[in-house]
Structures are given as C-alpha cells and as structure tokens.
C-alpha cells in the first residue's frame, strides 16, 4: 500500500488535497495539529466545502491553505485579512477562515488585524503562535518572550511581546480564545463555535516549534513542550484578556470574549435597504 493510499483511509482525508502531502512542517510542529483540528471542526459542522474559503499569509502555517480542499488563497506576507475582507464583502455567502502565523498577522499584518476586528468583518482568524519566524530560520517576532534567543536576538530579546488575546479584544473581536496544540478537543470545539458565530472571531493557538525556536532556547523535544503546556496551562473562561499575559510559569487558556455585535455586513445590509426604499 502506498503512502497516499494509506492517507486516503483517514476519515478526514476528503477535506485535504492529498496529492500535496507530505506537508512541509517539521516533526513536532503544532501546525499539523491545527490543520487536524480545523478539518475535524469542518467535518463535525458539515460545512459546505464549496462555500468555504481558507486564506493564509506567509510563513510555515501559511502553507495550510494549499492543503485544504476548498477555495483557498495563499497571499502576500501580512495581507490575508485584507484580502479576506475583499472576498467576504464581495460574496457574503462565503465562510471565511484566515489561518496564519504570529509574525504575519501581528507584525507586518498588524494594522489589517486591528481594523478588520474594529469593522467586525465576518471571518474566523486562527493564529499559530510559535513565538518566532520559523520559515526564515528563527528570527524574533512580535510575540517572542523577553530574554528569548533567536537568530536576530543573539544576546536575548529586549522587546516586550504582544498579548494577542488582549490585542484582539481591545480591537473589537466578538470571540477571543486561546489554546495550545495540546488542547486538541477544546481547540476543535472553539473553532466550531467561531465558525458558527457572526463577526470577527480570533483564536490563538500556542504551537511548539522544536526544530527552530525550541532548539535555540533549549526547550527539548516537542513532547517536552507538550508536557510543559500540561503543567503550566490554566483554563480560565471569561478571564480578563488584559491579564492573560503569557509567562514562563503560566499560560492562561480558554474563551476570554464571547459577545454579540452587529457585523459590517449586517450594518451594510440595513443601510442598503434604507437607501433602496428612498
């Protein structure tokens, strides 16, 4: 039996472009787990794959768009949310998921993130946060912890990292959650909830990067990082995202924000009906 035939037997195989496998991700990387949780969520919800668009940016997780068997766009660095805004507004019937990395969404693409959240454009944004730019060999990024070593912080990082869930909440996201690659079931449920909810939804997934970030910071193998997640993660639904800063001792995970607010599309539709009546 060939590897491909083996793959085809997987219950979620129909959601994937199998001819594109094996994927590019390193052993122990959390991105494959995110892919698994995402397609499991699609399967559980019975999402119409002809009406789903996955948009990604540049970086390791950026390749995810090319692995899922639906309309998908692997955009320029930092621009997936802006491009997704165009897709959603031009065809409101489509379900949009943006899946990208911490550098793509919060450094080069940070402005697009806050403004899409502010507008409350209907899309689910999933961020694989591995604390560094893995694709380019491990430079520091907007979420790299203080004192961490990367190729561009050879003496330790002196920049304060973003607390992504706080940022998302402050910018106006209607749903904000954080999980790690260890929380497979909870992450899947969170993705399902986000996909069913209207508005700008954000899920941060803390993801191991054993080959690049982990190696430089002596974090051991992926399994060691997973064990560590189990030790230091604390589930606190409804916790104030402002206080949910990630530290070496503790990672607060859970659903921080779950509110209702008119979406850009809904407000536009209301305006449209008023104008048509004139």
């Amino acid at each position: 039996m060939t590897v491909l035939q083996e793959f085809e037997k997987h219950p979620l195989a129909k959601y994937l472009r199998l001819e594109r496998f094996p994927h590019i991700w390193c052993e122990g990387c959390g991105d494959g787990i995110i892919l698994n949780c995402f397609v499991k969520a699609l399967d559980d919800l019975g999402i119409n794959m002809d009406k789903l668009v996955v948009v990604s940016g540049i970086g390791c997780i950026g390749r995810i768009a090319g692995y899922i068997k639906c309309d998908s766009f692997h955009t320029t660095h930092g621009r997936p949310i802006a491009l997704a805004t165009g897709i959603k507004l031009a065809n409101p019937k489509l379900t949009i998921a943006v899946i990208s990395g911490d550098g793509d969404l919060f450094a080069i693409g940070g402005n697009h993130f806050i403004h899409a959240a502010r507008r409350n454009v209907d899309m689910t944004v999933i961020c694989s946060n591995n604390f560094n730019y893995g694709m380019t060999g491990g430079q520091f990024g907007p979420t790299t912890p203080l004192d961490s070593y990367t190729t561009t912080t050879p003496y330790g990082n002196i920049e304060h990292p973003f607390n992504l869930v706080h940022l998302a909440a402050a910018a106006g996201a209607v749903y904000v959650a954080r999980w790690t690659a260890l929380h497979v079931k909870r992450l899947t449920e969170s993705i399902k909830k986000a996909l069913q909810k209207k508005g700008f939804k954000f899920i941060e997934v803390i993801s191991p990067c054993p080959e690049i970030y982990g190696r430089r910071n002596k974090l051991g193998k992926a399994i060691d990082t997973m064990k560590r997640y189990r030790q230091i993660c604390e589930i606190r639904h409804g916790y104030d995202p402002a206080k949910a800063e990630i530290t070496i001792e503790k990672i607060i995970v859970g659903e921080f924000i779950d509110i209702e607010k008119p979406t850009y599309g809904e407000l536009l539709q209301k305006q449209f009906l008023t104008i048509q009546k004139r």
């Binding site: 930092g78 802006a82 031009a90």
Partner: peptide
C-alpha cells in the same frame, strides 16, 4: 455594489484582489 474604505493602500489592493476572486 460594495464600497469599503480600507486602512491603507496595501489593504485596498489586497481587498480588490479578494473581491475579484469572489467574482466581482
């Protein structure tokens, strides 16, 4: 039709590419 004022021109250009792929 659909009008949107984006946060900058990087986003405007990205948005029209997305819209075009959505059929507009």
């Amino acid at each position: 039709g659909m009008f949107v004022q984006m946060e900058d021109e990087l986003a405007s250009m990205a948005a029209i590419i997305g819209a075009s792929w959505a059929g507009a």
